[in-house]
Structure formats: C-alpha cells, structure tokens
C-alpha cells in the first residue's frame, strides 16, 4: 500500500469519527470547514498523475497555468511526431542520394523543413482540428494567447526534431540550417493569415507558395540560391511584418468564424 493510500484510509476513518479531529479542549471543529478541508485533500488524492509531458514542462520551468494549454495542443500527437520523422527521413534520404555538391545536395531537405512547422500550426488551432475550439472561445483567455502558446509549442517541437535531422545531413556545413529563418517566416505568415481564414487553408497557401518559389529559383539559378543571405534577410523582414499583422488582427481569434449549426 502506498503512503497516499494509507493517508486516504486514515482520512476516511477520521471522516466517520469527527472527534478524531477535536482540539485539545475536546470541542469538535467547524463541520463546514472540516468538510471543505476533506474535499480539498480528496481532490489531491484522487488527482491522476500528470502526464510525462506535463511533468517535463514543469521541470523546464513552464508556468503552471500554461502547462495544460501546451499539453492539450491538438498537433502534439504521436502520429504528428511520427509523420514529421518520416518526412524528415525521406528528405534526408533524398539528400544522401542526390547528385551535386554542398548546399545543392540538400536542397530537398531545406525545402521540406519549413513545411513541417506550418503544417503543425494548421493542426494546432481552429474548429476543424480542435473539438474544444468553441469552448475555448467562450473562455476568458484570449484566442491570440492560446494560438500563440500552441504555435510556439509546435514550432519549438518540430524545429528541435529538424535540428537533429540537420546534424544528419551528409554535407552543407552551416548552410544545413538554412531552412530555419524561412521556417520562422512561413510559420509567422501562416499565423497572421489564420486570424482571417482557416489555419489549414493558410498553411496550404503559404506552403504551396514556398515550394513554387523554391522550384522557380532553382530553375533560374542554382538550386541552393534560394537559401542564400538574401533569403535569410528577407525571412527576417517577413517574420516581423507577419508578427505585426498577427498582433493587429488578433481580435478575430476571439470570435467563432463561419459556424455550421444554426
């Protein structure tokens, strides 16, 4: 028997015998207060053990009121993590078997990587992917903050996996993380557009545009031209502009858009 179970048995017995809790003068304590104390202790005893992720986040120092918002992120599923790893393996495989040298060899990996966090954002917020969306909107926490917490969660987790993948890329030197700033930009643009349209649609549009631009640049210049200094600087600018738009349009995240039932 665990110590918690011992405690529960002792408290259950005590609840049946109120004088157990009597003070030195043998007067029974206020029964209302006693019941409230028992219910608080019972709530602690009955509370299931927090999930592994919740315990990990608390160890990292994530605020207590933020932890449930992170662990409830719809995109944080085993299937999502598995999908990211499979996509990464395909991209890595393409890099190892590709012809050419340097950054040109890993252009597939660099192109696929920014698509991962934007797909994660598409699966993290909105009525189509989150059954609690309507209840979330009705709560006092603003949609902007909830979306931001979830997007940061998805971006951080997928970026961590992609950075590990970058280390496995056979060549490229520092250029192997050339996807990072474009990923930040495309994710920010997806978030900004999601204030007005369904996040899945926003992610689909931004992702498609990204692939088209990379293919176009690869055709007109070298495959790796898309990941040079100009793109990195433009990515920073696009991130800032998207962040400004996201903040300006934040109010739209607090309302239900295009409800179906009437």
């Amino acid at each position: 028997m665990t110590s918690l179970e011992d405690l529960e048995v002792a408290l259950t017995r005590a609840a049946d015998r109120p004088r157990f809790m009597a003070g030195p003068d043998h007067e029974v304590v206020d029964q209302g207060r006693l019941a409230a104390n028992f219910s608080a202790i019972e709530a602690e005893l009955d509370a299931p053990r927090p999930s592994l992720l919740a315990r990990f986040l608390k160890r990292l120092g994530v605020e207590d009121r933020i932890v449930p918002l992170v662990t409830a992120t719809p995109a944080l599923r085993r299937s999502w993590i598995l999908a990211v790893m499979v996509a990464m393996l395909f991209a890595l495989n393409a890099a190892s078997s590709a012809a050419g040298s340097g950054t040109d060899r890993i252009v597939v990996f660099l192109t696929v990587a920014p698509l991962v966090p934007i797909l994660g954002v598409a699966l993290a917020f909105g009525p189509a992917v989150d059954p609690t969306h309507e209840v979330s909107i009705a709560a006092p926490m603003d949609g902007f903050r909830l979306f931001l917490v979830r997007a940061i969660t998805v971006f951080t987790s997928s970026t961590a996996m992609l950075l590990v993948g970058s280390l496995l890329v056979p060549t490229g030197g520092a250029a192997r993380i050339g996807w990072l700033l474009p990923a930040l930009a495309t994710t920010s643009i997806t978030m900004a557009l999601s204030t007005r349209i369904d996040p899945r649609m926003a992610a689909g549009g931004v992702g498609s545009l990204w692939v088209i631009v990379v293919v176009f640049v690869s055709q007109t210049a070298t495959p790796s031209a898309m990941f040079g200094p100009v793109t990195q600087v433009l990515s920073v600018g696009a991130t800032i502009a998207a962040a400004v738009m996201f903040i300006r349009e934040r109010r739209h995240l607090d309302e239900l858009s295009a409800p179906e039932e009437r």
Binding site: E44, P48, R65, P68, T71, A72, A139, P140, M141
Partner: peptide, 17 residues
C-alpha cells in the same frame, strides 16, 4: 481530469491545486 484542468486554465483558474 486533464480536460477539466485544461478548461480551468482557459478560465484563468490557478494555481493547479
């Protein structure tokens, strides 16, 4: 219980206890 904890966080109820 996780779901109730999540909605509690959305309702800005804190701390977790």
């Amino acid at each position: 219980s996780e779901f109730c904890d999540y909605v509690g966080a959305l309702k800005e109820i804190g701390p977790d206890r």
